[in-house]
Design a protein around this nucleic acid. Structure first.
Length: 272
DNA sequence: ATGCCTTATTTCATAAGA
């Protein structure tokens, strides 16, 4: 069984590349993030022609997650119990968007696929450590931990996959000095990952196709990909029952090359 | 080579990404 996670940075803009990638690699289960469309806009028919069922959760312009499965799709969960909404100052506040009334953003979708409980997750960015968005990011991780803990009792084979927007260690960023004072590397963010691992989830670290670092994200600007100045922020956190079946895990950096790529590469995990 | 930012939208400018 092949499981993959990919922040596609708009599923509609990426559709030709997504379809080509699906057809070539034939993953059984795919977690997508930053689909950037409402669920009704998701190209379910197009991926359906390749044999995939879709569970999509979307807001519209921002965020958005989905699971594609060729091995069944049951017990779909949009968001997770206790998932917080962003309660800081809104960029474009309206009377219908008061703090306390906002819906959680579309950052999580879960489903049972081929004997696995799978989550596709897109953690908040956090922007800066001084920002209300950073507080929200940590609250979101704390609530995720509680929700996953509740599932783990009855779900021994679980994989939480996605763009966690945290680099687990200094080796997971191209230059730690550049990130001093930035999000993605702060001790509280890394502690949030450690708290997830403490539930019994293992970080399934992929091997890089090239170079020493299994980065999964490279900024579009300034030739960062070509200089391999990246970050490992797309993660697969799996229970022992899943991690023990891993035959190979790798970063598909071919998907970051060429015309019209996402700024993230997929992480592909082959399970026995 | 792998190539110098991209996306959706209240669009010819902005907010957001990390």
């Amino acid at each position: 069984m092949r499981l993959a996670t990919w922040n596609v940075n708009s599923v509609r803009a990426r559709l030709p590349r997504l379809l080509e990638w699906l057809d070539e690699g034939r993953p059984d289960i795919v977690c997508l993030q930053e689909t950037k469309c409402a669920a009704a806009q998701f190209p379910a028919d197009e991926v359906g022609e390749l044999g995939y069922q879709t569970a999509a959760h979307g807001d519209g312009r921002w965020n958005g997650v989905a699971i594609l499965s060729a091995v069944g799709l049951e017990h779909v969960t949009l968001g997770f119990p206790g998932e917080p909404s962003y309660e800081g100052e809104a960029a474009e506040p309206t009377l219908l968007d008061e703090p306390g009334l906002r819906k959680p953003e579309a950052r999580a979708v879960g489903a049972n696929c081929g004997g696995l409980r799978v989550w596709s997750l897109y953690a908040p960015n956090g922007r800066t450590p001084e920002s209300a968005h950073y507080v929200y990011k940590l609250e979101w991780f704390a609530a995720l931990r509680t929700a996953l803990a509740a599932e783990l009792g009855g779900e021994p084979a679980l994989a939480a996959c996605g763009d966690f927007n945290v680099a687990p260690t200094d080796d997971d960023v191209w230059d730690p000095a550049v990130f001093v004072g930035s999000t993605h590397v702060t001790p509280p963010e890394r502690q949030a990952l450690a708290d997830l691992r403490a539930l019994g989830l293992q970080d399934v670290v992929p091997v890089p196709m090239k170079g020493p670092h299994p980065y999964t994200y490279w900024d579009y600007r300034a030739g960062m990909f070509h200089a391999d100045k990246g970050m490992r922020i797309d993660l697969v956190y799996a229970t022992d029952a899943v991690a023990g079946r891993v035959r190979k895990a790798y970063v598909d950096r071919e998907a970051r090359k060429g015309k019209g790529p996402s700024d993230h590469a997929p992480v592909v995990v082959d399970l026995s």
